[in-house]
Design a binder for these strands. Structure first.
Lengths: 208, 208
DNA sequence: AGGCTAATGACAGCCACTGACAATTGACAA
DNA sequence: TTGTCAATTGTCAGTGGCTGTCATTAGCCT
């Protein structure tokens, strides 16, 4: 981030993300055109597409930052932890430092509102899920290396990640639906869901 | 399917699906335009969009049939089975009768090739995942009713379905990657993955 | 200062998708 | 059978996402 050129580019990109999220959260994703965003930032439509491969990418730009942050947190977990425990701790711990990462680009409050839009916009939700799958593959690699198993023959890394991903998506959905956007609420949900995982899968649900 | 009108409509729709899948699997999804499909079936582009909300929907039309079939199979499972076992049995059993359902519209071989295309086309994979989430919600409702629990307060139905969904997506991916498109291979993978679920989540992976 | 290169703007054009209206075609009763 | 009604389709025009191309601008570096 040395030269003037680089700083200018960063400013333009951040302005595009901020403006896009602002418009998406106020008017809705579908009712906001790329021209709207470009005009508000005072660049050409063509420039928008030089920064983002598509409208989706601008909408999910923050997402990429949080994901990268989570992946790094997993990488830093002590090796003695069991795989699922390392993932669990990464979520609980990662959210502490995530706040500042987000705030460096957009207000956290805007980020959270955008999350709602994503959940209720089919094409965005779809793109989000696809990205989740990609992350899961990355995490599976990390787990396999950590535990010294072969990803091609041992299904456990991908299995663990798939389950964890399912739980996280469920948690996200419930968290954003409950309306309690606090960190503690998020943490409590993750812990609660993972605790109930074992019983839900093996035991009978009926008490009689 | 009584009147001539209805039969004609069904034929047009089937022809569109068949042609779309044929083109998608030979030229690729992105390199096939809606005009290509419409022209091959000899209808106007506008008519295509009267049958399908978009290109995606035509590509995933078969998917919807298999999903509906799976949901019905789950509904028919004996009530004494534990939830996860009911899902497992539905997959193992459902595939037997699925063959004929598919073949009534397109050759199964074409359906399987389309599956490959879906896995390797980002926008299709995304749409597929989004649909999976919708199905999971449906199944969660069925499980909750089956077991007599409240979906709003008890997380176990959605938790179970999320885990099962994760395992199934993993299975799909590996199955289509292995190149062994037999039913038995599919069944073996499902059984194997579900068997390893418990150990992978709770135990240590290292043998020392 | 002046040459070099990265960044941008200004078209033109493709494709997915939609609304509106006219033309056609099957359904059904007189 | 024929005429009327309603469903289906075709045509046309237009919007919005996205890309290639080329000229212009603006920061960089000697």
């Amino acid at each position: 981030m040395e030269t003037l050129r680089e700083r200018k580019k960063q400013r333009t990109r951040d302005a595009l993300v901020r403006t896009a999220l602002e418009l998406f959260t106020t008017q809705g994703y579908d009712r906001t055109t790329v021209d709207d965003i470009a005009e508000a930032v005072d660049v050409s439509q063509r420039t928008f597409f030089r920064y983002f491969a598509g409208k989706e990418e601008a909408a999910l730009a923050m997402e990429d930052m949080t994901v990268a942050h989570f992946v790094e947190t997993v990488r830093g977990r002590p090796p003695h932890e069991a795989p699922m425990e390392a993932l669990r701790q990464s979520v609980l711990e990662g959210w502490d430092t995530l706040h500042d990462v987000i705030e460096s680009v957009v207000p956290v409050e805007l980020y959270l509102r955008m999350y709602q839009v994503m959940e209720s916009t089919p094409v965005l939700l779809a793109a989000h899920l696809r990205k989740s799958v990609e992350i899961e593959e990355t995490i599976a690699h990390i787990l396999a290396e950590r535990e010294g198993v072969d990803l091609d023959t041992d299904p456990r890394p991908r299995l663990t990640v798939a389950v964890f991903g399912g739980v996280m998506r469920l948690t996200e959905r419930q968290w954003s639906a409950d309306g309690d956007y606090s960190l503690d609420a998020m943490r409590a949900l993750v812990v609660s869901h993972l605790e109930q995982l074992g019983p839900a899968l093996s035991e009978s649900w009926r008490t009689h």
